[in-house]
Write a protein that binds this DNA or RNA. Structure first.
Lengths: 177, 177
DNA sequence: TAACCCATGTAACCTGTTACATGATTAA
DNA sequence: TTAATCATGTAACAGGTTACATGGGTTA
């Protein structure tokens, strides 16, 4: 039930529509969880059936009506229970590492080219996270009680991207030498 | 088709049985991909049907017979094609980051306790990878052409675990202050 | 004698992906 | 006028999880 928890967490942070959720899962929240709009709509229907969330229809001019979802107290309780249940470290699933594990069956240039492409992607993500960080958390010593939590997740975004970048560089060097 | 590629990559490294694969996906190869034995057996059946792998029945004394799977040339070709097709960075999916994102609805001690547990898990993984590294790659300057690839993936295992550890420490400090 | 390891499998279910579908509004 | 954005959905399929099942061998 992990997608449902991620949706509850996102709606707890800020009530929104399925469409908005899909965008958020493609941006900031998407750093640690992702889902397509189809998954999201299916899950929202289920969560509403189980009274974990409430929908409020918002009529709009010049664009389609939308349903804004909010956590019910039952939904918040579910989220709290899940957070309080200890979990093990989430497993990694990474295509690039699988490719490199079998990298000897292609040319070294193929792997180096792929590493260079990934390097660019990580650099872009890093810039995004750093921009968010300096915009929302310009002063680390002034964090609010609530802000601390988002700051911690953002920090790991920055840390991991920095880490992947350094590893790309190190690996490119090793394969080019 | 990502599980099938991970299986082809593992069998390319070393032919083995479904049971062995399950253990490997729970150990070294499991650092970058994981799968249950049920998934693996299902996928092996499919891969054999599509002539990507060959099975050789090995009779054993005092224990059940086993089927050792090896890549066919078609399977190697599939693996090579997949590696040569550029891919985007694999998305992260992490329960702990979702929990912390909504961390303000539980007590700070709950989150700190969870971080401390995860810290222990990352430390254990780090020790495992470092032991593998000093056993198989004691001298970085003496890497073989083939060894380089496994070394690169192992390096990222060590790097990422070190990173998660540092983040756990930083986050615990921030929440306890 | 109980629990665990070796080795393989079936069945049911849940989660995730891809393609298709609608229809108005807005920006290039 | 073409493409993109807003907003929601169905259908089919692939991938992943959990429970159940078998049966001999080994270790505590």
């Amino acid at each position: 039930m992990a997608l449902s928890h991620a949706i509850l967490a996102a709606l707890n942070d800020c009530p929104c529509s399925g469409y908005d959720l899909a965008k958020r899962f493609d941006g900031s929240v998407g750093f640690f969880w992702n889902a397509t709009h189809q998954q999201i709509y299916r899950e929202l229907t289920k969560l509403e059936e189980h009274s974990q969330i409430d929908a409020r229809l918002v009529e709009q001019e010049h664009r389609p009506d939308k349903k804004i979802y909010t956590l019910t107290s039952k939904g918040e309780e579910t989220l709290r229970n899940w957070i309080e249940t200890p979990s093990t470290v989430s497993p990694l699933k990474d295509d690039l590492l699988v490719k490199i594990f079998a990298g000897m069956i292609v040319s070294p240039q193929t792997i180096v080219a792929e590493l260079k492409q990934h390097r660019i992607q990580h650099l872009e993500s890093l810039h995004t996270y750093e921009a968010i960080s300096s915009h929302y958390f310009p002063d680390r010593s002034q964090l609010t009680d609530i802000g601390r939590y988002q700051y911690i997740t953002l920090r790991q975004g920055i840390r991991l991207e920095t880490e992947w970048l350094a590893w790309c560089d190190e690996s490119i060097d090793l394969l080019e030498s």
